Simulated scan of single mutants.
Amino acid sequence: MGAARARTSPFLHNTPIMKSERIDKIVGVPVLFKCEHLQKTGSFKVRGALNSAILAKEQGAKGVIAHSSGNHGQALAWSAQKIGIPCTIVVPKNAPQSKIDGMKEYNADLVFCDASVISRETVCAEQAEKLQYYFVNPYDCASMINGHASIALEILEQAGENIDSIFLSVGGGGFASSVAYLVGKLRPDIEVFLVEPSKKQLSNLLENGVPCPMDTLDTMADGVRVAHVGTLCEPILKEFCTGKIIGVTEDEIKEGLKLVWTRMKQRIEPSAALAFAGVLYHKPKHVKNPLVILCGGNVDVDYVI
């Protein structure tokens, strides 16, 4: 994980930490926000994507390919453009237009598919074989997980002595497992809580081995619509996050989004508001100094007009 940080840090931002006195009063405790929506391409995804693209190029890959509803695709497209290799992204038809536009701006070739995990994976596998490109899994991928770890290292450097917990949104689990593993090893006194759309039922998987019956979630938080975590991620999350899963409703996500937009003037996306909603509505009583990772800021323009 340290090697991945050294490999990628010259290209990326060390994103700032912010706070709001008004939000502190509403929540009842001081809340810190790690502003990863201000990262290159507008989300944390670029940390893992850049690490993956650099390693792929070093291994002689002709290009890179992934399936994505937006943030991973933009991150991989930017990374490929930065280091000079081709990139193709398989995109579900219901992806936000702003994220589709972002991928195009980074010169990615887009192939559209149906809005299901099965369709995404099938079409992506077909394209990868046809093009002979290196597949970069959005979450179930060691190079992605290792690349994401740099955000946890930054948090510990910036605020490690001032927090007792970290709240982050969980989708496929790559980001969550990276933060949970590193913080669990370096600072086990800091709890890592995973916030999910309530229908995901990750706690049922970690505690009882029962996966979510759906493969795609119907949620405004488009970055976390995948209902299942990756096979590499599941044992890590089971070890470090069992009993620390928080489910939130769509209305709670909306209210968290409004509060950050109006009080902090930060244009985060719903997937980032998801993590804040966990603190705003479901913070465990023993938590006194939480930090929320605002994971992305790629808001579909149609959503706000």
Rank of each mutant, 00 (worst) to 15 (best):
P10S: 14
F11T: 12
M18Y: 14
K19P: 10
I23E: 04
P30A: 03
H37E: 15
K40G: 00
R47Q: 03
S52I: 10
A53D: 00
L55Y: 05
L55E: 08
K57R: 00
K57Q: 05
E58I: 11
E58N: 08
S69D: 04
S69I: 03
G73S: 10
G73N: 08
A77Q: 01
I89V: 06
V90G: 02
N94E: 14
D101Q: 08
M103A: 01
M103N: 08
K104D: 04
E105W: 10
L110H: 02
S116F: 13
V117A: 09
Q127K: 15
A128R: 13
L131N: 01
Y133D: 11
Y133S: 13
Y134A: 05
N137V: 03
I155Q: 15
E157I: 14
I166D: 03
S178E: 00
V179C: 05
A180N: 13
L182P: 13
V183I: 04
G184H: 07
K185S: 13
V192F: 10
V192A: 07
V195H: 00
S198G: 04
K200G: 05
L205R: 11
E207C: 09
N208Y: 14
G209W: 06
T216L: 07
L217E: 07
T219P: 01
A221K: 05
V224L: 04
E234V: 07
P235V: 07
G243H: 09
I246N: 12
E255R: 13
R263Q: 15
M264K: 12
Q266Y: 06
Q266V: 09
R267P: 08
I268D: 03
A275H: 08
L280Q: 06
P284L: 12
K285W: 09
P290L: 00
I293S: 13
Y303D: 12
